[in-house]
Write a protein that binds this DNA or RNA. Structure first.
Length: 126
RNA sequence: GGAAUCGGCUGGUAGACGAUCGUCGGCUGGGUGGUGAUAGCCCAAGCUGGAGGAAAGUCCGGACACCGAAAGGCAGCAUGCCUGUCGAAAGACAGGGCAGCUCUGUGUAAUGCCGAGCUGACGGACAGUGUCGCAGAAAAUAUACCGCCCGCCUUCGUCAAGACUUCGGCGGACAAGCCCGAAUCCGCUAACCGUAGCAUAGGAGGGCUUGCCCGCCGUAGCCUUGGCGAAGGAGGGUAAGGGUGAAAUGGCGAGGUAAGAGCUCACCGCUCCGAUGGUAACUGAGGAGGCAAGAUAAACCCCUUGCGGUGCAAGACAGAACAGAACCAAACGGGUUGCCUGCCCGGCUGGGAGCUUCGGCUUCUGAUAUGGUUCGGGUAUUAGUCGCACCCUGCCUGCGGGUGGGGAAUCAACCUUUUUUACAGAGGGUGGUUAGACAAAUGAUCGUCCACUCCGUCCCUCGGGGCAGAGUGAACAGAAUCCGGCUUACGAGGUCGGUUCCACAG
RNA sequence: GACCCGUUCGUCUAGCGGUCUAGGACUCCGCCCUUUCACGGCGGCAACACGGGUUCGAGUCCCGUACGGGUCG
């Protein structure tokens, strides 16, 4: 799944809307906020937040790239029509890609955004 | 010579290959864009580019932009040995000078001298102001204090001389008392004198005692004078000494002096002038001065030189709405509708004075709904477009751009040349490229190989090896207007130096 | 991003280059007071962010580093 600029959350008001009206789940490395929106024409919109608490610019960039790659690969599992904000916690810089991916999938199931599509299972079976 | 470790300089080379999926920019294509063309928008695919030496810190300097002009001055800030080179500046480099520290050698009573290494924010402390705690006599002015010396005064001690006094001794004189009688004199008697006698009554005389005086000697006291010493006082001469401090007004020796002192002299040091050498910083032959001069300017300050301020969130363009200014229109305006009627909504005015038949009318004053045009300011803007992506330039243009030429840097392959092959260097030349985001791109996954770390397990000679798994791809670290420096961070390697250990040789 | 400011006991803060061994308040600890607690009294522990430099002497002055905070459309 591609992540061009139209599928990103970019304005302060959109981040504030997810924060104020949405729900959130916190994990070991991540915090995920989400909000359903029927009017959305995209499958979902993603926002990433990496604060200075995580580390210097190198570490922050690495965390963002890993999270973006996970969403590119696994974004088709997300139920369409949702705002989604991922906030990296202070220890996310020490986490590996697989750890981040496991935690994100766990969050997806717990939040109910996981989409059980037949096509993916059939593809896995095939 | 080797090893370890520390520091300086240099150095910035990427895990390799393949596959899949992505991200930002550019080019090409199609559609749209009323149309030939451009910009813009949409679509899918291909090609292609995409982090660093520090991109960091934001410590300097500049470009560029705006502020009113950016010329002068004050304030403020920065700068600081000399010469040269590079540079727009900041700054860097090279050489030199001076100073400090360390070491080796050498020398002195001492300061030193030669050499080597390291370090230096290295203009000015006779332009002025300030500060120098504690300790110390004294901390910046030259002397107060202690001390030393000189003479004077007072007191004391001692010695000498002198005067006086007390006492003692001796001697003498005098007075009183007593005693003495050979009788020397007076005296008395013999009439007087001579002479004789008397007499110790009186005087002289002698003796003794006492008193007093004088002299001498001794002793003690006191006074005066002088010497010496001590204490004190006021005065003068001194700067040798005062052991404290980070720092004390030249050092050492000799002479000299009341004591001392560059007071004088030799040597050393210092200050001033200064030959010579050097572009200069500087050097300092020689001479003069008897010696004035502390530190601090990363205290204020003075001098030299430089700087207008703000910073790309600079700024430019586009630009609603609300409010503002000017002008215009009509008393009606807006909505509904293709238009009209109709319907709906809002408005058709406030205040004062006067008159009134109470319906209104006249007059004064103030304000304005609504619509339109223009103006400047300028906000909102998913902060929209530009600024903003190598440089210069010609032509066309509908001014948005299009197209062409030249140059620079770099990459890949190629050619020539240097070199011992290779690597590498130099030159040529073909082709490509020139990071430009804005919640912010340059990545993710998988496979094979390599290196390292960790965990597990197996083997043996207990130090390694094998197998499997995970992680990392050396570290520091991610462009944000651009450029030049500085500082800081950092791994392997190279090089230089120090320290330690080992081995060998002398 | 560009540009400014600050850092002193556990906390909030004073602090002329010199008796700073850095003062005060709250906290903490010990003792006293009280039947006990509290209040109160007495005493004590406890700090100049780090590294260099200037100076006889640095918390203070200068330079660098680290950390924290602020302003600007």
């Amino acid at each position: 799944m591609k992540l061009p600029r139209t599928r990103r959350i970019r304005t302060r008001s959109e981040f504030a809307r997810v924060r104020n009206q949405g729900q959130s789940i916190s994990g070991r490395f991540l915090v995920m906020g989400y909000l359903a929106d029927d009017a959305m024409d995209e499958p979902f919109k993603l926002g990433l937040i990496t604060t200075k608490k995580i580390g210097n610019a190198v570490v922050r960039n690495r965390v963002r790239r890993r999270l973006r790659a996970i969403l590119q690969r696994e974004g088709h599992r997300v139920r369409p029509g949702h705002w989604m904000v991922l906030i990296a916690r202070h220890n996310a810089g020490d986490a590996t890609s697989t750890q981040l991916e496991k935690e994100w999938k766990w969050m997806l199931r717990k939040s109910g955004l996981h989409l059980e599509t037949k096509s993916s299972e059939e593809a896995a079976a095939a």
